[in-house]
Design a protein around this nucleic acid. Structure first.
Length: 566
RNA sequence: GACCCGUUAGCUCAGUCGGUAGAGCAACUCCCUUUUAAGGAGUGGGCCCUAGGUUCGAAUCCUAGACGGGUCACCA
């Protein structure tokens, strides 16, 4: 169990000082002691009103000229610079020391010694009480070391924030996946590439937002708590509203609300926000995930595909990404326009399913069985075709590809094609074998929508599909007031970020991914038996090894332990 | 949900055939005024994930469980 139980001990016996938290670990105790010694020196280990010093990147730019100096010692003592950052390395050599401190731009080296700091400060404070993990402020002049590294020669050194938790080891860093996800802050301190990924994520979201704003779309916020879960096929999380005495569902998609806005006259809207689905977790699924949905009145799904290509071109241009990106073993070519293949055609041309099979329920069932795929035999033709697609096509779509014209029965919210009533005017965009976007001409016939909801309800009965959609009569009523011809699309932001940053787990692109609860952080009295928790000091003896106590009377201890379990 | 792998010091990891628990980094005490994972000498630090079982004896073998990772299934 790599996540160690940090035992936080509340020392209730020492009420007089309003005793603070004590961390039961040798290293932490030592660091707390150092913070105390700072206080004894009249130094607040957590001072207020500290301002950020010169960014490290600016330090390197601004003083680059010192490297070019001809002098015997390359330095500029006329300059006074302050840097702030977290200590990542310390190398003490007797009366002088080097340290590397890190700010949001990166690492920079500082140098400090006994004679250039105020009297006694080096020996008593800087050398003894500042250590890896602490955040400090260093003031001095720039110089270049014998090995050619631009460094700050300190005249003054202050604590900004004392860290009482030790950092992982400097060379191997933090590799434990569990701690990396649970304590993302540690992951970010120790693994710079993690910060890079999330900076990229932030930029991508920002560019997506700007792209749609620039195209005249209005950003809106619709409810996260829905009376009826709608807009997708998924199991919702349920919560309860006490004042109203009703259950609410965390939204599985914003679609039905955004379309209500279209009815209301917002002709181009988008929302970038979280959806929640109460389903399994794996490398591409987190219970809460981010998507953008946008709705565009007086446009169709061909316009959406074009807009999507423009969006990719825009993001790639703004981020200065090459058109071909590596994704694990794959090379993905993002050159637009993307390939377009009709759904039924893709089953044959990409999936290799014989053409005479793809339109016949019985033949598909037989074909799937033949290939070892178990399916519910009550599924309609469209659902069976979707099974074929998932099994034989999806994984093969490496370069961005629009699959178009989906079966109508798996597209309950999209408009029926006028030419072929079995087909929805819909597309999905795939890349690296994964779905990344879904768009279609919105169904705006209220009676058709009503029938589709009913069909979903029927499917729920027939196949026990818990995820089939619920009837939403208010939405039908909204459509009854007339919705302009509209096309709408959703893009999975997490998966998009995965593609563009070559990350293969959704957890690596979500700052705080969902995790099972870790072992509870225990709160224990200081002097207690490690086994039964007995706090009667007369009955305790110190542990032979390590810290803590055990009961002297082992039998009584065992009894108490059994009691505790009940 | 099924299967596979993992869990040992603060971190990264060894631990042979079942026989007193190991290293590097970090910490502590010294030496060291231009280092680059600084170096040198010494010291301390373990509920070996948890609970049962087998055994004279378990980090090690067995059973169950917890948490994590992976593969598959489910899920657009």
């Amino acid at each position: 169990m790599p996540i160690k139980t940090i035992i936080i001990i509340q020392n209730k016996s020492n009420q007089s000082t309003g005793e603070h938290l004590i961390f039961d670990n040798q290293y932490i105790q030592e660091r707390i002691a150092k913070a105390e010694r700072l206080r004894e020196e009249g130094i607040n280990p957590y001072p207020a009103n500290i301002t950020k010093g010169m960014p490290s990147s600016e330090f390197f730019e601004h003083f680059a000229y010192i490297k070019e100096l001809d002098a015997e010692e390359k330095k500029d003592e006329t300059q006074t610079v302050t840097l702030t950052g977290r200590i990542k390395f310390v190398r003490i050599m007797g009366k002088a020391a080097f340290a590397k401190i890190e700010d949001s731009d990166g690492l920079v080296q500082i140098y400090y010694n006994r004679d250039d700091l105020p009297g006694g400060y080096y020996n008593n404070v800087a050398k003894k009480l500042f250590e890896v993990g602490d955040i400090i402020e260093a003031t001095g002049f720039p110089f270049v070391t014998q090995t050619g590294e631009l460094t700050l020669h300190c005249k003054d050194l202050k604590i900004v924030s004392k860290a009482i938790m030790p950092l992982p080891e400097k060379f191997h860093g933090l590799t434990d996946q569990e701690i990396r996800y649970r304590q993302r802050y540690l992951d970010m301190i120790m693994n710079p590439e993690v910060k890079e990924t999330f900076i990229m994520r932030s930029k991508i979201v920002s560019l997506v937002r700007r792209f749609f704003e620039d195209h005249g779309f209005l950003e809106v916020e619709t409810p996260m708590m829905h009376p009826i879960p709608g807009g997708a096929n998924a199991k919702p999380f349920v919560t309860h509203h006490n004042a109203l005495g009703v259950d609410r569902y965390l939204r599985i998609a914003p679609e039905l609300y955004l379309k209500r806005l279209t009815v209301g006259g917002m002709e181009a809207v988008f929302e970038i926000n979280r959806n929640f689905r109460n389903e399994g977790m794996d490398q591409t699924h987190n219970p809460e995930f981010t998507s953008i949905e946008f709705y565009w009145a007086y446009h169709n799904y061909h316009d959406l595909m074009k807009l999507t290509e423009e969006l990719f071109d825009y993001i790639f241009a703004q981020l200065q990404l090459p058109k071909t990106l590596r994704y694990g073993e794959m090379e993905i070519d993002f050159t637009t326009p993307f390939a377009k293949v009709p759904f039924i055609e893709s089953l044959t041309t990409i999936g290799g399913v014989p053409e005479d099979i793809t339109g016949d329920r019985g033949k598909i069932l037989a074909y799937l069985k033949e290939h070892g795929v178990e399916v519910n035999e009550n599924l309609t033709l469209g659902y069976l075709q979707a099974e074929l697609f998932d099994e034989f096509v999806e994984g093969k779509l490496i370069n961005p590809t629009f699959i178009t014209d989906y079966p109508i029965d798996i597209s309950p919210l999209s408009r029926r094609s006028d030419e072929n009533p079995d087909i929805a005017e819909r597309f999905e965009l795939f890349m690296a074998g994964k779905e990344i976007a879904n768009g279609f001409n919105e169904l705006n016939d209220p009676l058709d929508q009503y029938e589709r909801f009913k069909a979903q309800a029927a499917a729920k009965e027939a196949t026990g599909d818990e995820e089939a959609m619920h009837m939403d009569l208010d939405f039908v009523r909204a459509l009854g007031h007339g919705m302009t011809p509209t096309a709408g699309e959703g893009i999975g932001i997490d998966r998009l970020v995965m593609m563009l940053t070559d990350n293969h787990s959704i957890r690596d692109v979500i700052l705080f991914p969902a995790m099972k609860p870790e072992a509870a952080l225990e709160e224990k009295p200081e002097n207690a038996c490690k086994k039964c928790g007995n706090t009667n000091e007369d009955e305790l003896k110190p542990a032979k090894k390590g810290k803590g106590f055990f009961c002297i009377d082992a039998a009584a201890c065992k009894r108490r332990e059994q009691e505790n379990k009940k």
